[in-house]
Nucleic acid binder design. Structure first.
Length: 277
DNA sequence: ATGGTAGACCTTCTA
């Protein structure tokens, strides 16, 4: 029996925005794979991490040919993030505020000028291993800076999507074998507390709004047959401000991308918003 | 027992 008030049918022209986030592990090594996936998945906005090149070596023409505007924050060899959008892009922020001497390219944020604008960030949070080196406190400082920025954005009461590779396994259910991660920076109590502190400012994890079961992973190591054994972890997230969460229509983890030719070790996470809501 | 793979690149670092 049909619902008495078929809301979707009554509103046939929904203003939807599809936002994807993907750690591509070198945009140049992955270019044919990434282009094929974009053509199939048709996101309006794509957040890439680990582009592993300077801005001048980013293959922007290939993406422009698919109809995307392109903004990058690159770095030689390591890290690097990018934003692609079929809508105009403005108000670009390159680099996470709060530590001017930090030269690692891990954050780009911009306003996506859809009929209802959405602020989107592409985030590559530091890995933090090994935990007995300076890398771990750097990760925690970076998390604190991200929390500070996220709090500022909330105050504007606009739709915001903070998307990327957070390098955090939040709960034991987010790892196939949590016992293998207990000494890893991704699963330390401080890391998980920082992720919760960020969420509890008032952001929704799109995974929790969606219907995917626990045991949905976004990363499988290249080593030791992790993919074949489904020894994965969920570390790629889309965090939505209340104004964006109100527009949530669905999300999907594109697990099939791990079986593509020359796959990244991460797969895309895709979120659909209905901005007409 | 300390593996295994992938990417950038000066030959080792990062993940």
């Amino acid at each position: 029996m049909a619902a008495p008030f078929p809301v979707d049918a009554a509103r046939p022209s929904l203003a939807t925005m599809r936002i994807a986030t993907w750690n591509v592990n070198s945009v140049n090594a992955r270019l044919p794979t990434v282009l094929a996936w974009l053509e199939a998945a048709q996101p309006d906005v794509a957040c890439f991490q680990e582009i592993k090149c300077v801005d001048e070596k980013f293959p922007r023409e290939a993406f422009e040919s698919l109809g995307y505007n392109v903004e990058t924050h690159g770095q030689k060899s390591y890290n690097g993030v990018a934003l692609l959008s079929k809508y105009p892009i403005s108000d670009v922020v390159r680099g996470l505020p709060g530590e001017p001497e930090d030269e690692q390219a891990r954050y780009i944020e911009a306003l996506i000028e859809a009929p209802r604008p959405v602020r989107v960030a592409s985030i590559y949070l530091p890995n933090g291993n090994p935990i007995d080196t300076e890398k771990f406190p750097y990760k925690l400082r970076w998390f604190q800076r991200l929390q500070d920025r996220a709090r500022e954005l909330l105050a504007w009461e606009e739709p915001v999507a903070l998307c990327g590779d957070y390098n955090c396994i939040l709960t034991p259910q987010d790892a196939a074998k949590p016992e293998e991660w207990v000494r890893d920076a991704l699963f330390q109590p401080q890391t998980r507390q920082a992720m919760n502190a960020l969420k509890w400012l008032g952001y929704a994890d799109a995974h929790e709004l969606g219907k995917e079961p626990k045991g949905t992973y976004t990363f499988w190591d290249y080593q030791a047959g992790a993919w074949q054994r489904n020894n994965g972890i969920r570390i790629d997230y889309a965090l939505l401000s209340p104004q964006a969460a109100d527009c949530f229509r669905g999300m999907e983890t594109h697990r099939d991308a791990r079986d593509m030719e020359k796959p990244s070790d991460h797969v895309p996470v895709v979120v659909d918003l209905n901005l007409g809501a």
